[in-house]
Amino acid sequence: MDEERDLDRREREILALERRGFSGPGLKERAIREELGLAPVRYYQLLNALLDDARALAFDPVTVNRLRRVRDARRAER
């Protein structure tokens, strides 16, 4: 079976939103609420789980690897 088909629609939408650039404060949170119907806290929980999912890596390796680097750098700062 094709790996990307394993991701459901919401998971693909989360990765697509992460590929977009947001120029101002609050725009991303607004898009999360309006386009995905999620609270930002829940969105980031789902995103974090996706970053550890091999299916997401196979579907969009550039985005997942970029976000993993950002996450790892933030963890190292703590």
Rank of each mutant, 00 (worst) to 15 (best):
L57A: 10
P61I: 05
A31M: 01
R66Y: 14
N65E: 15
G21H: 13
E4F: 13
R55M: 01
L57K: 04
E77F: 10
K28T: 08
R30L: 13
A49V: 02
R78P: 02
F59V: 00
D2W: 06
L51K: 03
R66A: 12
G21P: 00
G37L: 08
V64T: 07
A49F: 12
G37K: 06
L15Y: 08
A39T: 05
I32F: 12
Y44S: 10
L7K: 05
A16R: 12
A31S: 07
Y44F: 15
Y43V: 05
R10C: 01
A76L: 11
L7P: 03
D72W: 12
T63Q: 13
R75N: 14
E3L: 06
L15R: 00
E3N: 03
R5N: 05
D2M: 07
G26Q: 05
A76S: 12
T63G: 06
A49L: 14
P25Y: 15
K28I: 03
Q45E: 15
T63P: 09
D52L: 05
V64C: 07
A76I: 04
L36I: 04
L67Q: 08
V62I: 15
I14C: 04
A39L: 14
G24M: 05
V41P: 01
E18P: 02
L15Q: 10
V64Q: 10
A49Y: 10
R71A: 10
G26W: 01
T63H: 09
A58T: 01
P61C: 10
E34W: 08
I32H: 03
S23V: 04
R75W: 12
R66K: 13
P61G: 02
R12D: 02
R42S: 10
L38H: 04
L36F: 07
L27N: 05
R55P: 02
P61T: 03
R19I: 03
D6V: 09
A54W: 05
E4D: 07
L67H: 12
E18L: 01
E13Q: 15
L7V: 07
L67M: 12
P40C: 08
E11V: 02
R69D: 13
E18Y: 02
S23Q: 11
R42G: 02
G26F: 00
R19Q: 15
R33S: 11
D52K: 10
D52I: 03
G26V: 00
A73G: 07
L50M: 09
L57T: 02
